[in-house]
Design a protein around this nucleic acid. Structure first.
Ligand SMILES: [Mn+2]
Ligand SMILES: [Mn+2]
Ligand SMILES: [Mn+2]
Ligand SMILES: [Mn+2]
Lengths: 218, 218
DNA sequence: AATTAAATTTAGACAAATCTAAAAATTTGT
DNA sequence: ACAAATTTTTAGATTTGTCTAAATTTAATT
């Protein structure tokens, strides 16, 4: 598989094309910052290769082989992200760009040994689950911080927005995965939250709270 | 720079095109397993980019920028080889293929941090020197085992042939970098050697001896 | 239901990197 | 020095992945 083909497969998976829902060429084009006509060409090519199902004018969805392929690329992407953070002291806002390149390196042994070196991590630096060698992975039971009730405690386990700006903002405010957060108060007016974290009280906007995943205690 | 361009630059460097000697398109084509006509096209392209000097019908040689580029790629290649051996338990005959891919990953921070993780190695698993960030490196003072006199001792510091078959052969015979070797006798007939290594006596062919580098003691 | 708007595909073009076959230049051998 | 052999370049074609502009299909609106 070429790098371009792999990127298409991965994007389609992320857009939800793993079940029978058809993903439109426009949606793919927008996500990949390319043109719909290019997507059509690639859809035909990948359909012929058996990686996806393509219904003219309707859209695409991944075949079983397509899903397996996508999971393999995502596994590599996320393992490399862990490597960059844990072994090379990258911060979580710097890893994505490099992982986009590293995910295309072809060597089964490489990725299995990397997995071992990292002690078989279950989640990447952004809290996203890492598929196992055979494509299985556990989506964590998590909720957006903005949607949990007042006076409940949870552990911060992931981010929805993985943009560098958001991640740097979290760093600046000492919000990190693993932190315990308690919602103290919710402002009716703007949906902003008063929270307690690491002993300190903090006021965060709805914008922030709706991009942070927490796992409720017990 | 594209992957293809980088591979051309690297190959030309290895063929000795760093000084004023011109390297022929045929030599490059043979080394890269491509056609001379393809090399001509690329030579023009790289000349226009200022990476090499191209004299029609004569050949090419790298400019200063070309040499710098080559050294940067070689640095990456060799650092990744060290990583694969030291951190992921690859054997020295398995690393080249994967390093050929990894050497094209673009991230200055990645390679500097990798260097640090590996404790700034000076040589790769095959005994080849690793250029520093600013392109400097020390070619070790070494000789082919086949060319040192009888009754001299040396430390095995490198291999000339880096093919998988040769490296596996050395593994099988417990010949590894760092071993001390003494030449006991040289057969006039076939140039084969009787050597002493790790307490054992060994008989090796000229073919082997002329592909092993040793550094004489003192 | 007909018209308009939006999404999608087709047709044709382009750049990068490669190839084959033919032409041109260089080198070799007498 | 000249013919033959070799090397190198040119010309034209191919594949991959992309694009623009036009045509077609589907969806939305009156
Ligand atoms: Mn990522
Ligand atoms: Mn991630
Ligand atoms: Mn190598
Ligand atoms: Mn090497």
């Amino acid at each position: 598989m070429t790098r371009s083909e792999e990127n298409y497969i991965k994007t389609i998976f992320h857009l939800g094309g793993n079940d029978t829902t058809l993903i439109s060429t426009n949606a793919i084009a927008e996500q990949m910052e390319t043109k719909p006509s290019s997507v059509t060409d690639m859809a035909r090519k990948l359909a012929k290769k058996g990686l996806l199902y393509y219904k003219k004018y309707q859209g695409v969805s991944l075949t079983d082989i397509g899903v397996k392929t996508a999971l393999s690329i995502i596994r590599k992407h996320r393992l490399w992200e862990v490597f960059l953070v844990k072994k090379l002291d990258f911060s979580w806002d710097e890893v994505h760009e490099v992982a986009e390149q590293l995910e295309h390196i072809k060597s089964e042994k490489l990725i299995d040994k990397l997995d071992e070196l990292l002690d078989f991590p279950k989640y990447d630096p952004h809290g996203d689950p890492i598929p196992s060698k055979d494509g299985k992975f556990m989506e964590r039971d998590k909720q957006l911080l903005s949607e949990i009730p007042i006076n409940t405690k949870g552990v911060c386990v992931g981010v929805k927005d993985t943009s560098s700006t958001f991640l740097k903002f979290l760093d600046k405010n000492n919000i990190a995965l693993g932190n315990t957060i308690e919602v103290l108060e919710k402002e009716e007016f703007d949906q902003s939250l008063h929270i307690q974290m690491s002993g300190k009280e903090l006021h965060i906007s709805h914008q922030i709270a709706s991009n942070l995943y927490v796992k409720l205690n017990d």
